[in-house]
């Protein structure tokens, strides 16, 4: 397999995963503080945040495989005036820096709740800015398969969906980690998961349905589009049809599994402590589905004209 073909799908998906997750963490933090108090909540999001940071750094590092001369990647900041790629890179750097600072003060600085909150939202903002710039890259008049509002919409949906499936995994990991360290935080995690898994599963189902709607709009747009768009469509239906189906199947299996897990939890057929394999599987399936989806996104674009 050609590694270069996979750099962009993996890079963009991981970045979006991080943004979606960070956003949800910050929402949860905002809600959780009222219930459990700021310090306790912050304790429980340190490790998830750390994992997010590693993910972003891995993602951007991995993206360098996309370049033929990765050692010159800093030059990509030269064209902020007009290049969405430059802008994306800048946003991404700001995003990474803000997450690093955030993590630093979460870890080492006591108090300063307001600062933490603001910094967190800033990081989220930079994350979404990265996401936005990233989608703007593809709004090119020469690429009809990309050049529609559906591109930013689908990017955003992917971002949220990945966040929704990743959050419980991080929580569970933190839980297990803390247990191994014999720090007692399980009450909080368990409570949190019990409280939210149902909602998260519902959100995932909802996002998944939106996703299918967006995909059908995308296909519709290709269908009625220029020759190039129709060529894209033919690629999708002739060569890549199995991948398209695989992606949808993976998504539905994942969401089904998610809902089932949430229901079982609710009916107390499974204890929180045993959830990890389930939420992990769900997250993995969605990630694979989305990487496939993104791969297709890159694979089917066809330039207009000649």
């Amino acid at each position: 397999m050609n590694i270069r073909e996979w750099t962009l799908p993996i890079y963009t998906i991981l970045t979006q995963l991080s943004v979606g997750t960070l956003f949800l963490i910050w929402v949860i933090r905002a809600l959780g503080r009222m219930k459990w108090g700021a310090e306790k909540v912050d304790q429980s999001i340190k490790i998830p945040l750390f994992i997010i940071l590693t993910t972003i750094i891995f993602a951007i590092g991995f993206a360098h495989f996309h370049l033929s001369r990765p050692y010159l990647s800093f030059l990509a900041l030269r064209n902020l005036q007009s290049s969405w790629l430059s802008r994306e890179l800048l946003a991404n750097l700001l995003y990474i820096i803000s997450v690093i600072i955030l993590l630093y003060i979460l870890w080492f600085v006591k108090g300063h709740q307001r600062l933490k909150t603001i910094l967190g939202w800033m990081a989220v903002l930079f994350g979404f800015a990265t996401d936005y710039c990233m989608s703007r890259i593809y709004l090119l008049p020469s690429q009809p398969a990309w050049n529609t509002l559906l591109t930013p919409i689908s990017f955003l949906l992917t971002t949220f969906l990945l966040g929704v499936v990743t959050i419980p995994v991080l929580m569970m990991m933190d839980l297990i980690f803390k247990r191994s360290q014999e720090q007692d935080n399980q009450a909080l995690h368990a409570q949190f998961i019990e409280a939210s898994l149902g909602w998260l599963a519902a959100a995932a189902s909802f996002l998944c349905i939106l996703m299918v709607i967006v995909i059908s709009f995308q296909i519709g747009a290709l269908f009625s589009g220029s020759t190039a768009a129709q060529t894209s469509l033919r690629l999708l239906t002739d060569i890549y049809e199995p991948l398209v189906l695989l992606r949808l199947v993976l998504l539905f299996v994942a969401v089904g599994w998610y809902v089932a897990t949430a229901l079982q939890l609710r009916q107390k057929k499974v204890s929180v402590g045993k959830l990890l394999p389930h939420v992990f599987a769900v997250c993995l399936l969605v990630m694979v589905a989305e990487i496939l989806g993104r791969f297709l996104f890159y694979a089917i674009h066809v330039r207009i004209g000649i």
Partner: peptide, 16 residues
Amino acid sequence: DLCIGCRYCEWACPYG
């Protein structure tokens, strides 16, 4: 000397 090989221009150009 400045090209980093991102191949973005390839996508952007309408003429290949």
